[in-house]
Simulated scan of single mutants.
Amino acid sequence: NNQWAISTPAHRQHAAPTFAHKALAHGLPGERVDGNDVLAMYQKTREAVDRARAGGGPTLIEAVTYRVVDHNTSDSAEVYRDQALAEHWKQFDPRPRFEAYLTTRSLFTDALREQYEVECLAEVQAAAARALALPRSDPMSMFDSQLFGDPGWALRLQQRELAAELNGANPFTSIDPEALA
């Protein structure tokens, strides 16, 4: 729960007092936790996993956090929300918060941070290299019949739009949707 449904406050999107309450309608336990607290999240997810493994079924965990940045690249959050609130939430960023917790207990040092940064960067670069080395797949394969029974008109339109774009045409002006009916 990042407290926003794109540009609308989440509390205006549903009648339940919290998302965790929604679990009741499905006969599930619902737990609400500070989503920016690494240890609280670990404890709550550990309890949920243990419960599930013991045959108790799933648990809905509402991790309460805040979206401090725009929803996407075409969004301007400053238009619909108070930037002071976003700035307030930045102090609860989980990474520096957990890092401070570990540092005050002498469990994390600048040297360890540098070591992890080097290791993580190497891991990301290796993963990117592996991904880039993979043979490119045919984008049209996403429409293979084993994925969809009857694709319907909307999916057929998307398939034709992609084929047109891959062939250099403008799919939004070169396809007649009426022909797909």
Rank of each mutant, 00 (worst) to 15 (best):
Q125T: 13
L28V: 02
L28C: 02
A40F: 05
Q158K: 10
W153L: 09
G27Q: 01
W89L: 12
A179S: 13
K44S: 08
L39I: 11
Y116D: 13
L28K: 00
A164I: 04
A5Q: 11
F108V: 11
A128L: 14
G149I: 04
G55T: 02
I61H: 06
R67K: 05
D34S: 06
A54S: 07
A54D: 03
A122Y: 13
P58W: 03
R32V: 07
L180G: 05
C120F: 15
P171F: 03
E178I: 06
V49M: 05
M142S: 00
L162H: 02
W89T: 11
Q83Y: 07
A126M: 11
Y116I: 14
T8P: 12
L121W: 14
T8S: 11
N1K: 05
V118G: 12
E161I: 01
G30C: 02
G30N: 05
L39M: 06
L85Q: 12
V49P: 08
L180N: 06
A10G: 03
A77T: 03
E62G: 07
G27V: 00
A5W: 04
P9A: 15
G57H: 01
G152S: 04
L121G: 13
L39N: 05
G152I: 08
E161T: 03
T8A: 09
K22E: 12
D34Y: 02
